[in-house]
């Protein structure tokens, strides 16, 4: 099974790396966010004793995870449109493995994008106290990304054209993006923002990353990780079930 997951994931990554402009896009995206948000706002603010730039870094990592994870799932729709999905569907591979393999490949790519943000932040002066925080951050990013891609895949199974997926995706992703504690601390936010944030998996990813880098956060680390893991397992099962039914 892990061999199959690897093969499927490898194919995803292979395709993504063939499109050179995507890699440039990733780097550019990461830089723009950091420079504009971090340097634009940080002289004005400081939160819980840390600079706004430092506060923002975990948020930026989370956001740069969200977009490629979720929208990467639209490749399932193009696989269907160009016919390759049929090759996967007649192969003697359980649907759960298909979903997991695709999710892992897309998550790998999203995690690279998040790691790039981290790398730029460090270059721009973000303090890392222990070397192990780097692999820990990447692990959290990967876990969060797996859940988000499975979530995207579950939708992509139901929605059969890319335009609708993009449109619906924007409706879903923007609240996730704005109400995640990426830009402001949640404890000072009004209750409706807070409540929404607590059903948003990105919130937990960002919270976990803030705790291990800055030592500030709202929820215990173990709860953060539990939520992310649970979200991944549930979306994986749902996506595999939907897949089984629809094809």
């Amino acid at each position: 099974m892990w061999n199959d997951v690897f093969t499927l994931a490898y194919r995803e990554v292979l395709i993504l790396t063939k499109i050179k402009i995507r890699i440039l896009g990733l780097i550019f995206n990461a830089l723009i966010w950091l420079v504009a948000m971090g340097f634009g706002l940080s002289p004005l603010l400081s939160i819980s004793g840390v600079s706004y730039f430092a506060f923002l870094v975990p948020g930026m990592i989370g956001i740069n995870l969200l977009f490629p994870s979720f929208f990467g799932a639209s490749t399932l729709i193009t696989d269907r449109q160009f016919g390759f999905l049929k090759e996967m569907l007649v192969a003697p591979i359980p649907r759960t493995t298909l979903v997991l393999g695709k999710a892992l490949g897309l998550s790998f790519y999203a995690t690279v994008s998040a790691a790039m943000v981290l790398a730029f932040s460090i270059i721009l002066g973000f303090q890392i106290n222990h070397w192990w925080t780097i692999p820990a951050l990447i692990g959290i990013a990967l876990l969060a990304s797996l859940g988000l891609t499975c979530f995207g895949l579950a939708l992509a199974i139901k929605i059969k054209d890319t335009q609708s997926f993009q449109l619906l995706g924007n409706f879903i992703v923007f609240p996730f993006f704005l109400l995640s504690g990426a830009f402001f601390p949640l404890d000072q936010a009004p209750w409706f923002i807070r409540y929404f944030s607590y059903i948003n998996p990105i919130t937990y990813a960002i919270d976990a990353m803030r705790q291990i880098t800055l030592g500030i956060g709202h929820t215990p680390l173990i709860l953060d990780l539990g939520v992310l893991f649970g979200f991944f397992i549930i979306t994986l099962i749902v996506a595999a079930k939907l897949f089984d039914k629809s094809e």
């Binding site: 093969t7 194919r11 395709i15 063939k18 016919g83 049929k86 090759e87 996967m88 192969a91």
Partner: peptide, 28 residues
């Protein structure tokens, strides 16, 4: 079973070799 489809079922972004490799892996 093995199946060849009427409409394309190759991955158009991959090369012939990569497509065949993928198939071999899927069928162990």
């Amino acid at each position: 079973i093995g199946m060849s489809f009427q409409d394309n079922s190759l991955d158009i972004d991959l090369t012939a070799k990569e497509n065949l490799w993928f198939h071999c892996r899927m069928y162990h």
